[in-house]
Write a protein that binds this DNA or RNA. Structure first.
Lengths: 112, 112
DNA sequence: AATAATACATAAGAAAATTAGGTATATAAA
DNA sequence: TTTATATACCTAATTTTCTTATGTATTATT
C-alpha cells in the first residue's frame, strides 16, 4: 500500500476513468477492480468511496440505478456526458502533473 | 495551476528532494524554486509550507540555522542523514505510484 | 509615497480521508 | 452448525491537512 497522503486527490480521477470504460459499476465492484488492477497497492476505503460517489451523483456527474441481487441491494453508477468530459480533463491534468513531477524530482523516462 | 487536491500529499516529497540536492535552503527560497522549476504550475503556499517545515524539524528530518540578512531573519533548513534516506524512500514511492497510476489510467508512459 | 517583493509566522475555517461503527445477506470453512 | 469471510450498502466522529486570512517587518521598485 502507498502512504495515504500520496493517494489523496486521485480518488475522483480513478472513479471517473473506470466509469468511462465500463457502462456501469457499483461501489464494491470499484474497490475490487482497483485492488485487482493495482495488485493491492491501492485499496479504496468505503468511508472515502461512498461519500465521493454521492457527491458526484449530486453534481450530475454520475447517475444511479438500484438493483436487487437476491435479497441484497446493489447500486449501479453510470457516468453522464458531463462526467465523461470531466474524466478526460482529470486524466489529462494528472498526466500533465506527472510530467511536472518527473521533471521536478529529476526522474528518468521511458516510452513504451 | 493544478487543482489543489492533486498536489496534496506531494509537498513533503518535493521539500525533501530539493533539500537532498541543495546544502541548505530557506522557506521562501523553496517556494520560488518550485514555482520556477514548474513554470508556475505548482505554487507552495506559506500556510502549508511553514507548518510542514516545522514538523519535519521536530521529527529530526531537518535542522535549522537562523541567519541575519541585513535586518531580516532567514531560516536555513538542512537535511539530516535520516532525512536523506526518507527522501529517497519518498521519491521511490512516488515513482512506483506513478507507474501504478499510468497502468490504471491506461497511459502511455513509464518511469525507470 | 506607495506598492511589490522578501521573509518569517500562526490561527480559524474548510475539505477530505481515516477509523470505527452499523445493518444485512450469502457463502465457505471448521 | 456455528463461525468467519465475503458481499454490499451507509454514516458519524475524529484526525489530518490545506486554504484563507492575518500579522509583523525589512528592502526594493515605481
Amino acid at each position: 500500500m502507498y502512504s495515504s497522503e500520496l493517494i489523496k486527490g486521485t480518488l475522483k480521477t480513478i472513479i471517473l476513468k473506470l466509469l468511462s470504460e465500463n457502462d456501469k459499476m457499483y461501489g464494491y465492484e470499484i474497490t475490487q477492480k482497483v485492488k485487482e488492477l493495482t495488485g493491492g497497492k491501492i485499496q479504496l476505503t468505503e468511508g472515502a468511496l461512498y461519500p465521493t460517489l454521492h457527491a458526484l451523483e449530486a453534481n450530475g456527474i454520475l447517475t444511479t440505478n438500484a438493483v436487487n441481487v437476491g435479497n441484497r441491494i446493489r447500486k449501479y453508477y453510470t457516468i453522464t456526458p458531463t462526467g465523461k468530459s470531466l474524466a478526460e480533463e482529470k486524466v489529462t491534468e494528472f498526466q500533465d502533473f506527472m510530467n511536472t513531477m518527473i521533471f521536478l524530482l529529476d526522474l528518468k523516462l521511458k516510452t513504451v
